[in-house]
Design a protein around this nucleic acid. Structure first.
Lengths: 345, 345
DNA sequence: CTGAAAGCGCTAACAG
DNA sequence: CTGTTAGCGCTTTCAG
């Protein structure tokens, strides 16, 4: 196909109102607007001849259906909103990536919002989201604010909370237990002969929960109370390095450290190398997240794998199932976690 | 405020049609729908008394304006679409983050699409985007497909291409020159006494352009032709490690390597450490992107800083300016780049 | 299988 | 300052 681009008119002048509609297509194809609509939405139910006419007209006019209008009338926006704390930390990248792809497979689009780590889900953001009448809302973490829960519930929009567990999900939930993770990590370290533990954790709610459960497990195992170093979220390589220094300023009496993210763990690994601390012999290091780089570090990082992609896929499925009227088998899906044993312990 | 949550009704039953509208609010406030609309969109232009009545009614009914309907009528969706190759590589995170925040500041929302690195911007995705009638479209990279350019242009939607330069932008552009980056890096290495160069680059178009310009500059500087190792995009720590091994399988005759991403550079640093190659004495390493971790690596990574946040902010401003009818001063903004000298060279 | 009528919820445009 | 009317572009609904 030889393509001669048409003379390019400057896009300064908006011609939004001149946009072609179903009626233009219908006119050209010599049929009704309704049939054009059907040709687009349920092509199987039209005789091939009609379909062909419509498609020719669509091609000729360059018609692009206005999804706002369709959504208004049919009450289906084919839009799903996702709220994540931040894109700065790569923890949720996989989930967002999987969500985007999975939803697109179903014919839906993703709208992204950033909620921040600390705030209790501001009212304004919620209004902006609900106002778009998305067919579903995916939340990172569980919602604690009673006000936000009420608004979400009142909106009637399917909601999936993720990356956590809750005894009372707003609607659906795809996550895992942070305290179970921390307990498993602590037991893992203990089983590998580590007795004097430390934890470096972000100051966001879920990381704090992990730190607490880690401490509690250590105590129940009869170990000394672990040292706890808190760093601001989102966690970085730099904060991992300084956290290890800070920890050692307090005491050098620990032989294992659990980091609340792989980035933090990479920082600890880096600082250990600089300080000449042998990993894992002198110090065992564990991360959280199993980011892509964890396996390729030196030493390879023992960490907790959370299948972020799976979370995204399941969340998409939950919402689409609900929207299409299918029964959602279970309201809560615990996708669990896996401790990936590598060289750093 | 003591909050007694109302009895929670199960969200299974969708009550989307029961949603409250301007008319409900108007009725309750004893005024017209139009005034409710004005109370929401131009509150300053209403007498405080009226405004108060409306706000009371809104609070009482829990009204959330339907932005689909408003957008349909006013031809302003307050939605901006962004297309990025992938979320897997963290390179664009800052840009997306900044876009989201900046747009929200203007009262706009971001819709996210993933275009993949290779494909020439599929038709279907483009339709899904344009069909939503966003007020703007932000693209990562410049569009080469004539068909895509035409559709974008025909849509009349403001477009910002980013992360690259083009002699013929579709509309607006916020980026920098990849060949200028590579040339500067090569000269930098040369100025630091490196004579036998290598480059490890992703197989995406922009990375390839950097590799080529790097080679060309080396030749023009009278150096031997640099070794080139290509790795699949998105680039990872792991691919950086194996690339260095592969490079050394060919030859050990190089004293500097330019990596097309910081992740790749981290991989090279890691592998160098494992192989006992001293950085920077034996091997100088440069990255690209200046991700958050680059400064905290050991040795700290010399790299090219691209202000991804700035790109996001400028792109948002371009679109909002255009939508609100303000003149956009320049169609092309070259945000440039900076070589950040640290310890790895 | 196809079409006509009606209206989703909102706001532009124009009165008053 | 406020209200009325109309209609954005599509699809639901019902009737051929």
């Amino acid at each position: 196909m030889t393509e001669t681009p048409p003379p390019i008119q400057p896009p300064e002048r908006k011609r939004r109102n001149a946009s072609v509609t179903v009626n233009d297509v219908a006119l050209l194809a010599g049929i009704s607007a309704m049939t054009v609509s059907r040709a687009i939405n349920t092509p199987d139910r039209l005789p091939p001849a009609t379909l062909a006419k419509v498609q020719a007209a669509i091609a000729a006019t360059g018609y692009v259906p206005n999804l706002l209008a369709g959504g208004l009338r049919s009450n289906k926006s084919r839009l799903v909103a996702a709220l994540i704390p931040t894109l700065v930390s790569p923890v949720f990248n996989e989930t967002v990536q999987a969500l985007t792809s999975a939803l697109r497979g179903y014919g839906y689009q993703l709208m992204l919002g950033q909620s921040g780590y600390a705030e209790p889900l501001e009212d304004e953001l919620l209004g902006a989201i609900i106002g778009r009448r998305p067919d579903g809302i995916v939340l990172t973490g569980v919602v604690h604010s009673a006000e936000a829960r009420r608004r979400l519930l009142a909106s009637g929009i399917p909601v999936v909370e993720t990356w956590d567990l809750s005894p009372e999900p707003i609607d659906m939930l795809v996550g895992f237990s942070h305290s179970a993770v921390a307990e498993a990590v602590c037991r893992h370290l203990h089983a590998h002969g580590r007795r004097r533990l430390a934890v470096i954790g972000g100051d966001d709610e879920r990381a704090q929960r992990r730190s607490q459960a880690f401490v509690a497990t250590a105590l129940s195992l009869g170990l000394a109370e672990p040292w706890v170093q808190e760093v601001p979220a989102p966690t970085t390589l730099g904060s991992g390095r300084s956290a290890l220094r800070d920890l050692r300023a307090q005491s050098t009496d620990f032989d294992a450290v659990f980091c609340s993210s792989d980035m933090l763990a990479l920082g600890v690994l880096t600082e250990a190398q600089v300080l000449g601390i042998a990993v894992p012999t002198e110090l065992a290091v564990m991360g959280f997240g199993d980011l892509a780089f964890a396996r390729d570090l030196h030493p390879a990082l023992t960490t907790v794998r959370i299948d972020g992609m799976q979370i995204g896929i399941e969340a998409a499925r939950c919402i689409v199932d609900r929207v299409e009227g299918r029964a959602v088998p279970q309201r809560t899906i615990d996708i669990g976690f896996t401790i990936i044993e590598r060289a750093s312990v």
